[in-house]
Structure formats: C-alpha cells, structure tokens
C-alpha cells in the first residue's frame, strides 16, 4: 500500500472518529436499539434458556438490525450536512471508502463489545469456545462494514431511505451471515466446530472489500 493512500485513510478515519465522538446520536441509537431488542426477548423468556442455535440466530439478528440503524449514516449524514461535496473536492475515492469502512468496523466492534457480554448475562448462554466466538463476531462485523460502506454510498441518492438499507444489505451479506450463525451456535456449545467456515468468512470479507473498492470509483467521481 503506498504511503499517501494510507495517510488519506488515516485522515478520513480520524475525521470520522472526531465527528462520531462529537455527535453521539448515531452511537446511542445503535447501542440502545441493540439493548432494547435483547431486553425484549430476555423479558419474554423470563429466565428460560435458548438452545445454542436459537441463541446464535438471536444474537446475529440483533447485530444485523442494530448495525442497520447506525451504519447507513456514513454518507447520508454528510449529504444532509452538505459536507459531502467538500469531501469529494478534497478526498479521492479510495481513502474515503477505506477510512469510512475502518470507522464502520470500529463502531460495529464496539457494538459487539457492548452487546455480547449483556447477551451472556441476560440469556444465560455460555461460550464453550470463546476464541472462536470472538473471531466469528469480528469477521462477521467486518463483512457488514465492508458491504455497508458501499451500500451506504449507494443509498444516498434514494428518495425513500427507511428500510432500504436493510433490503439492499441482506442478500449481499448472507454469505457471511449464515456461516457466522452456524459458527456462533457451535461456539455456544451446539455441536463440533467447523473451523473452515472462518476461512470462508475471511475470504468473503476480502471479496466484499475488493468489490466495494472497485465499484466505489464509479459512485464517487461524477462524469
């Protein structure tokens, strides 16, 4: 990677972090959404335990929809604030894409760090393979960050925004989502581990990032 690209990525990432810390609504809505959903199910269960497969599916549903609340803001907020044009003038496509992708990954990793311990406390689940559990979560949210950044840029021009992001996201992220649910269930004690799924997820994450990188140029530069 050449140094100017890396510098650009770092600059965009720093900008995103500064903005994110200053304007906390995106974080707050995402975290509260995750907490509310988890609390709803936990309340309804009244202390009853879910089997690993169900628990894994629940955890990923929460992560997926919570990320839909937060991750689609990347470009829409800039568009609304009128700063997108400025970013287009000063930033070239790749640093902007990867800077925002890294920030999105960081945000989602924080979300997971917040919700996973609560999930164990409230659902009474137990990680039999904690290492695999953590790695699966990270690879899963990396996929959401990679695909989400491109799709957030796509959705900027749409007139109907509510729900559109989730609709666009699900088919694209399914190849990460399905193995992630399987692996999480296994890490929670639901059967023997199939570790090659981890490789598959990493590979698909890479594919999404490369695909996003190639296609983003078309979205970023006006003709």
């Amino acid at each position: 990677m050449n140094s100017s690209l890396w510098t650009g990525i770092k600059l965009v990432l720093c900008k995103e972090l500064t903005m994110g810390l200053r304007f906390k609504a995106a974080w707050a809505s995402m975290f509260m959404f995750a907490l509310t959903t988890l609390a709803c199910v936990s309340l309804a269960m009244q202390g009853g335990q879910l089997e690993p497969k169900m628990a894994a599916a629940l955890l990923w549903m929460i992560i997926f929809f919570a990320s839909m609340v937060g991750a689609d803001r990347g470009f829409a907020d800039e568009d609304a604030a009128g700063t997108l044009m400025v970013l287009k003038l000063y930033g070239s496509a790749q640093p902007v894409l990867f800077g925002k992708m890294l920030y999105s990954f960081f945000l989602l990793a924080m979300l997971v760090l917040f919700i996973a311990p609560l999930f164990f406390v409230l659902m009474g689940a137990e990680a039999v393979f904690p290492g695999v559990f953590v790695l699966t979560l990270l690879l899963g949210v990396a996929g959401i960050a990679a695909a989400g950044t491109l799709l957030a840029a796509l959705a900027v021009g749409a007139r109907v925004k509510n729900g559109l992001f989730a609709v666009l996201m699900l088919p694209v992220i399914l190849p990460v989502f399905l193995p992630a649910i399987f692996l999480t269930a296994e890490a929670l004690g639901g059967g023997s581990l199939s570790l090659n799924y981890l490789g598959g997820m990493a590979l698909y994450d890479g594919l999404l990032a490369v695909g996003a990188s190639v296609l983003f140029d078309y979205l970023w530069y006006e003709d």
């Binding site: 695909a147 491109l150 799709l151 796509l154 959705a155 021009g157 749409a158 007139r159 109907v160 925004k161 559109l164 609709v167 666009l168 088919p171 694209v172 399914l174 190849p175 594919l207 999404l208 695909g211 996003a212 296609l215 078309y218 979205l219 003709d223």
Partner: peptide, 26 residues
C-alpha cells in the same frame, strides 16, 4: 426497490449498475 426509490437518469443508472455488480459477488 433501489430503482424505484430513485429519480430516473444517469445517477439511478449508475447506482443500479453498481448494485447489480455488487450483488453478483454472492
């Protein structure tokens, strides 16, 4: 849905084409 949510023109064409290509990764 994406096409339906955007006004006709080159921007929609570009967005739709990028999504068609991106979803092809599956």
């Amino acid at each position: 849905t994406l096409r339906g949510a955007m006004p006709a023109g080159h921007r929609r064409a570009k967005t739709a084409a990028v999504y068609a290509m991106f979803s092809f990764l599956t």
